[in-house]
């Protein structure tokens, strides 16, 4: 069991870090959305998938490459998210949280079903941008440039988001509006607009993760369906109270999953759920959760 080559160990750890980046970006978006809208966005996985498809369409229709997609896809999807918030989610304000979950679940079924109808279940290839092809020889392993970029860039985006929410004036408004929206409104802040923008931002993060994933996992209609459930477990483990908590938990669980693939591959699909069960037994509010 322990005679694993360091090569295999490090390459699985890298895969784990990559998955962790997606977990972090997605659970961060979920946490930000939940904070403002009190909605668990079940459509997050489908929107991540649509972010990847957006990159694919930008290339195949408009001829715009990876770097354009990295900017445009989150903006386009973010605008789409704001449209969803204005037309539908917005109407659920004041109702039980469950309805938000059900509505976004319905949206996820629609998006996923539509893309499956037109693109089947197989993957569409999306090339790694020229600048990031190749790999570095680190001595103990080969590190593909693109994978290193994904990890570093995701981490940077996560930290920038953390900084924007925890350290800037806009972030202070946002946190205040999360705590007490009516009081913040009384100070003249346009809270409904902030809610719309927040949802758009969360969706943009999901789309960004989708673009980053496109060259690694191919563009598939089902790429978000199962991922979102793992991200839910990540959110339960971390607790949604803390931005940094979502980031740390996301990366950490990706690593744990990678390690499991090396030492006990049969459990690699389920390890996150097992950890969730253990955390619930020991610390029901989640590792970074504030209240039960």
């Amino acid at each position: 069991m322990f005679n694993i080559s360091t090569q295999a160990l490090f390459s699985q750890l890298l895969v784990g870090l990559i998955n962790g980046s997606f977990y972090a970006l997605l659970s961060l978006g979920l946490a930000v959305i939940f904070g403002m809208l009190n909605i668990i966005n079940f459509a997050h996985g489908a929107l991540y998938m649509m972010g990847a498809f957006c990159a694919y369409f930008l290339l195949s229709i408009a001829g715009l490459g990876y770097w354009w997609a990295l900017v445009l896809s989150p903006l386009i999807m973010g605008a789409f998210g704001m449209f969803l918030e204005r037309t539908m989610l917005h109407r659920l304000a004041g109702l039980d949280h469950l309805y938000g979950l059900l509505l976004t679940f319905g949206l996820a079924l629609i998006f996923q079903g539509l893309f499956q109808n037109y693109f089947g279940s197989s993957g569409l290839p999306y090339a790694i941008p020229q600048e990031l092809t190749g790999a570095q020889n680190l001595g103990f392993m080969f590190l593909p440039n693109y994978r290193a970029w994904v990890v570093v860039f995701s981490l940077a985006v996560c930290l920038a988001t953390w900084f924007a929410i925890e350290k800037t004036k806009l972030g202070a408004y946002l946190r205040a509006a999360t705590e007490n929206p009516s009081l913040v409104r009384a100070f003249g802040v346009n809270v409904p607009r902030m809610i719309t923008l927040t949802y758009g931002f969360g969706v943009g993060l999901a789309a960004l993760a989708g673009v980053l994933a496109a060259p690694i996992n191919q563009v598939r209609p089902l790429m978000g369906g199962d991922l979102i459930i793992v991200v839910f477990a990540v959110v339960v483990i971390g607790g949604m109270g803390s931005i940094m908590g979502s980031i740390v938990t996301g990366f950490a669980l990706g690593l744990v999953e990678g390690l499991t693939k090396v030492f006990y591959p049969e459990a690699s699909n389920t390890v996150v759920f097992v950890i969730m069960a253990l955390v619930l037994l020991v610390k029901p509010a989640g590792l970074f959760g504030r209240t039960a």
């Binding site: 109407r91 509505l103 679940f105 319905g106 079924l109 629609i110 079903g113 539509l114 499956q116 109808n117």
Partner: peptide, 21 residues
């Protein structure tokens, strides 16, 4: 007819939650 079942279910979900709770 393919995955239209999923789409139809999704539409019913959305319609029920928005207008027919």
């Amino acid at each position: 007819i393919g995955q239209w079942v999923l789409v139809a279910q999704g539409v019913i979900f959305v319609a029920c939650v928005l207008a027919f709770r």
